[in-house]
Amino acid sequence: MSYAQLSLMEQLILTLSAMILLTSFLLLAQSRIISLINTFASQGFLLFLGTCLIAQSSGRYHLYISAGMTLALKVFFVPWLLRRLVRRLDIRRDVENVGGPSMIMIAGGALVLFSYYVALPIRELSDLATRNTIAISLAVILLGMLMMITRRKAVAQVVGFMSMENGLFFAAVVSTYGMPMVVELGIAFDVLVAAVLFGIFFFQIRAGIGSLDVDHLNRLHEVDR
C-alpha cells in the first residue's frame, strides 16, 4: 500500500506529524530564547491541529477535549509563563551557544532512525498511518531528551522537557486515540504544576547561583573530592 492510497485525512495527519518532527529539530538548533519559546508554542499548535484531525476522522469526540487542553496548556499557558519569566528575569536577549550544532543534528537524525527501528515490532500491528506516527512520537520524545542533555540554560531545558511531554501526548493520541479521560486530566494537571514549579525554580536558581546556567550547579558529586 502506498501513501497515495491513504485517505486524505490520513495524509494530512502524516504531514502534520512530519511538521511536528521538524519543529523538534528546530528546537534543537534554536539558540535565541524567545524564538525557542515561539517554536515550542508552534509545536503545541501543530499538536492541537493533529489531535483535532484525529478526533474528526476517528469520530471520538472526547479527543476534542484533549485538543482543547493542549491548546490551553501548550500553546497559551506554558509559553506565556515562560515569556513572562524571561521578561522578569531579564534574559530576553540571551543567546545560547549550542555546542557542536552539526553533531547534535546528526545525533538527532540517528535518534529518528532508532525510533523507527524500535517501533518496528509495533507498526506491524497497525495500519500505515499509525506506523509512522508512533515512530515519530518516540522520536519527538528522544529529541526532547537530547535537547535537555545538550542545553546549558535552565529555560532551554524546560522547553526540552515540555517538548518531551508533547511527544508523549502525541503518542497517546495517535496510537490509542488518547488515554482515558481521568488519566488525561491527571497528566494535564501534572504538566500544569510542573510548569509553575519550574518558574519557581528559575528564581531559586537565580538567587542561589546568580545565573540560569545549569553548568554552575556543580557542587554535588557522586564521590566527594
Partner: peptide, 10 residues
C-alpha cells in the same frame, strides 16, 4: 535554599 539544595532539587 542553599546552592546545594537548589542544585539537588533541580
Amino acid at each position: 535554599r542553599t546552592p546545594e539544595s537548589i542544585e539537588a532539587g533541580w
